[in-house]
Deep mutational scan, measured.
Amino acid sequence: NQESVVAAVLIPINTALTVGMMTTRVVSPTGIPAEDIPRLISMQVNQVVPMGTTLMPDMVKGYAP
C-alpha cells in the first residue's frame, strides 16, 4: 500500500508547505504520494487543510501529478 501525504497540523489557506506540516499515512482514497514531499515544500495550499486531512493534488497550487 502506498503512503499518501497527510496534514500533520492545521494548514491555513495560502500557506507555503514545510516538512513539519506534512506526515504520511496509508489512506483511502490515496492522495499525493509520500515521495512527492520534496516537491511540495514551498508550494501553497489553496484551501484550509485540517489536521489529518489527506492532501489531494487539487489542494496544492501548481502541483501536477
Rank of each mutant, 00 (worst) to 15 (best):
P33G: 07
I41S: 04
Y63D: 04
M51F: 13
V60N: 01
M22K: 01
I37C: 03
T53L: 09
P29M: 04
G31P: 00
M59Y: 10
Q44E: 10
K61I: 12
D58Q: 14
I32T: 02
L10H: 12
N46I: 13
M59H: 10
V26S: 11
M59S: 03
N14A: 08
P65M: 12
M22V: 10
P12T: 06
L10S: 14
A34C: 03
M59A: 06
Q2K: 15
S4Q: 02
V6F: 02
M43V: 07
R39K: 07
V19T: 09
S28V: 14
G31W: 02
A8I: 13
T24A: 11
I32R: 00
R39G: 06
V48H: 13
I11T: 00
P12N: 14
K61L: 11
I41Y: 06
A16M: 15
L10V: 08
I32K: 00
V48G: 13
T24W: 05
M56C: 03
L40Q: 00
Q2T: 10
E35L: 14
E35C: 03
V26T: 08
N46C: 03
D36G: 14
V48T: 13
P33Q: 09
A16H: 15
G62F: 05
P38I: 06
M22I: 05
I37D: 01
V48Q: 14
V60M: 06
I37H: 04
V48W: 13
V60R: 00
E3Q: 14
Q47C: 03
M56S: 06
T54G: 02
S4H: 02
I37A: 13
V49D: 01
A8D: 14
T30E: 11
S28W: 12
P57T: 15
T15E: 10
A8T: 07
K61Q: 10
V5H: 00
M51K: 14
V27F: 02
S42P: 03
I37Q: 14
M43L: 13
T18I: 04
D36F: 13
M22P: 01
I13W: 11
G31N: 01
T54K: 04
I41T: 14
N1A: 14
E3W: 11
V19Y: 10
G20R: 05
V5L: 05
A64M: 11
A8K: 10
A64G: 14
P50T: 07
D36W: 04
Y63I: 09
G52P: 01
Q2Y: 15
A34K: 10
V60G: 01
